[in-house]
Computed example of a mutant assay.
Amino acid sequence: MEFGILMGDQPVGSSPAEHLDLMLRKVEAAQRAGFTYLTIGQHFLYDGYRWFQPIPLLARLAAELDEHVKIGTTVLVGPVHHPVILGEELATLDVVTRGRLVVGIGTGYLPAEYEAMGVPFKQRYRLLEELIEVMSKLWSQERVTHRGRFWTIEDAPTHVHPIQQPRPPIWLGAMKETGVRRAARHGDVWTITPQQTVEQVKSLIELYAQERMSRGLELSPLPLRRELMIGADFDDAVTRFAAVARGKYEAYAGRGMTLLDGDAVRGEFASTVQDHVILGDPGQCRAQIARIAEELPIGPLLIRPHWPGMDAEQTAAYLDEVGREVVAPLRDLRPRSFADFLDSATV
């Protein structure tokens, strides 16, 4: 089983130089700990926290990669971009990484980002679908003609092609049934969000598989995002997780992330997170991951090693611990195959 990390934000009170150093230290520590996917998301005009823009940051981090490590966006806010600009930038990044790029993309959930870009939030899903269609043409064709709802290109030459053909893998983010079906149609895999329980995920994977199979499309293991905290025992892990994550959970709920209940996050934090966060001593955490892998066709497992406010030393220590207690012991774990999952499902 493969593991990856999500590299996120940092309070704007920290200096940009310190933030970049944190990212470089994180990449070094993650590779030392055995992680093979390094990813980062995207936000614009974000209040209180700094998000480095992923494409230029990943181009810098690519210089630090071991040969077997992949790098990716999880996820880009796709609809606010023009497909020609984004497509050429991502193709360039795939070349810079020597064909080791994963393109995670979605719609995001913040209307303010769309308003600032002059893009209609209500059209975000149609925009996303057409964006992927245009970029896929740009990546795989010598000349492109496209006449769509939002963009028109007439017999234009393409000059920047990715190394990976016909395109880099597209991981589509989604939280609900409609989005999961969209991921099945337009992406290569669906990236499972971290706030969903195993039971919720099971039913969505069945819908995803049904949509893929109806179109004769290949089924591949699904990247699973999960938060993870190791402690001396379960209660200690909850305490440690609350110390670093409660504020961010409250911010997510306050910004309208529909999978989180703000009152519950502010009140019974432990009961809010224990059904979707991997918590406990090292053995308990390994057992939880193994149970998920027994039930779901997943891979890689992506975790967040850093919460805003943690410094580079704390982040490196976290990655060293998870590498030693989770990644190395579970390296030979084989998640459930899609074929086996479907044999026992209702698809």
Rank of each mutant, 00 (worst) to 15 (best):
E211W: 06
I230T: 03
D9R: 10
E113F: 12
I132R: 02
W151C: 03
G283H: 13
T39D: 03
I5C: 11
L224D: 00
S337Q: 06
Y252F: 15
V119M: 11
R147W: 07
E294C: 09
I55P: 13
D340I: 06
D281L: 07
L228N: 00
S214W: 02
V160I: 15
I289V: 13
V189Q: 05
V265G: 06
S214A: 15
V134E: 00
L224E: 00
L217S: 01
A232V: 15
V96W: 10
I85R: 12
I278L: 15
D94F: 10
R50I: 01
V27R: 05
L204N: 00
K176S: 14
E177T: 10
A112K: 13
L333V: 04
L127S: 04
A17Q: 12
R212H: 08
T191W: 00
P329A: 12
C285H: 02
G34I: 02
A290G: 13
E28M: 12
L260T: 08
A345L: 08
L101Q: 07
L22D: 01
V238I: 15
A270H: 09
Q200K: 02
S140H: 09
H161I: 03
A33D: 11
A264H: 11
E250W: 06
G262M: 13
S220K: 14
L131W: 06
V326I: 15
T74V: 09
P16Q: 08
A112V: 13
R50M: 11
